[in-house]
């Protein structure tokens, strides 16, 4: 089970990387930690001409906190977040999510940007960061090397394995807002065994000081169901005791809209969200 031939470059700047990504004559694939791409390469499911390893680019490995939040470079690893080497602005939310991703040896190389760009619906970051209201910072594009645009995380994943990157663009960083002291957070992931992919994810954030109430139902086999204003899930009256007003029927209607009809899938996804709500209420 060995990969087909590919070529490899490790640029030292985003500009050099973008140059390579603009090559239209080649199937170019970005390699961040490679913890998702590696297996696909080994199985020959992916056969690129060129891998562009972006882990040698210092500006992608920065963690820069400020008063409103933190900007994490695309090549910050799950272990960096788990261990707090990348400062936490979320009261422990990010490290807890990171710790639940795959296994430690994988987290030591797997990156936040790689995971988001891989756009796997079962991935923790796709759902978790959407619930936190994070944003993707994208470099390149029509304005060239200095071009920069920002997308909400829920818009960054456009479909299964499809990120909203145009040719000649790269995910530079993720912007995560700082949670206020009163913020309540619940996250519940349903897996059959530790480290296995999620069969359902529920996430809820209630941060009244910032007027934020968000909810996510993830691991749905397509883009996660992100509710930017989730007050209606709580009878329009969210409170610290979110569970008290939680409206399961409203959540079920979300699944209807998503077209999720399988009774088992509906049941576990509703369970994941309700349990996330319970966790948020218990804090």
């Amino acid at each position: 089970m060995k990969p087909a031939q590919f070529d490899y470059e490790r640029p030292s700047s985003v500009a050099e990387a973008l140059d390579l990504l603009r090559r239209e004559d080649l199937f170019v694939k970005v390699l961040a930690g490679g913890q998702s791409l590696g297996p696909m390469l080994n199985l020959r499911l992916v056969q690129p001409d060129l891998l562009v390893d972006i882990t040698g680019i210092p500006e992608l490995k920065r963690a820069e906190p400020d008063s409103d939040g933190i900007t994490l470079g695309a090549c910050i690893t799950n272990a960096d977040i788990e261990d707090g080497r990348a400062p936490d602005v979320t009261g422990g939310v990010l490290p807890a999510i990171a710790r639940g991703i795959a296994y430690r040896a994988v987290r030591n190389r797997g990156t936040i940007g790689g995971s988001l760009s891989h756009a796997d619906p079962s991935a923790d970051w796709v759902s978790g960061l959407a619930a936190l209201g994070a944003e993707a910072i994208i470099r390149g594009g029509p304005q060239g090397d200095s071009g920069r645009r920002t997308l909400p995380i829920e818009d960054y994943m456009v479909g299964v394995f499809e990120a909203a990157l145009e040719p000649g663009e790269i995910l530079e960083a993720v912007r995560i807002p700082r949670l206020s002291a009163r913020a309540r957070w619940g996250y519940y992931k349903i897996c059959r065994k530790t480290g296995e992919f999620a069969h359902a994810i529920g996430a809820v954030l209630y941060d009244p000081e910032r007027s934020v109430c968000r909810a996510v139902i993830g691991a749905t086999e397509s883009t996660p169901l992100v509710v930017a204003d989730a007050a209606f899930l709580f009878g329009d009256r969210p409170s610290d005791n979110l569970a008290a007003t939680y409206d399961t029927a409203a959540a079920a209607r979300l699944l209807d809209r998503k077209g999720m009809t399988d009774p088992f899938e509906r049941q576990v996804h509703l369970a994941a969200l309700r349990r996330a709500v319970d966790r948020a209420s218990l804090q």
Binding site: K193, E196, F197
Partner: peptide, 13 residues
């Protein structure tokens, strides 16, 4: 065709 499809019990199982 992978250990992601064929689940072996691990230490927590």
């Amino acid at each position: 065709s992978t250990f992601a499809d064929y689940l072996l019990p691990g230490p927590t199982e």
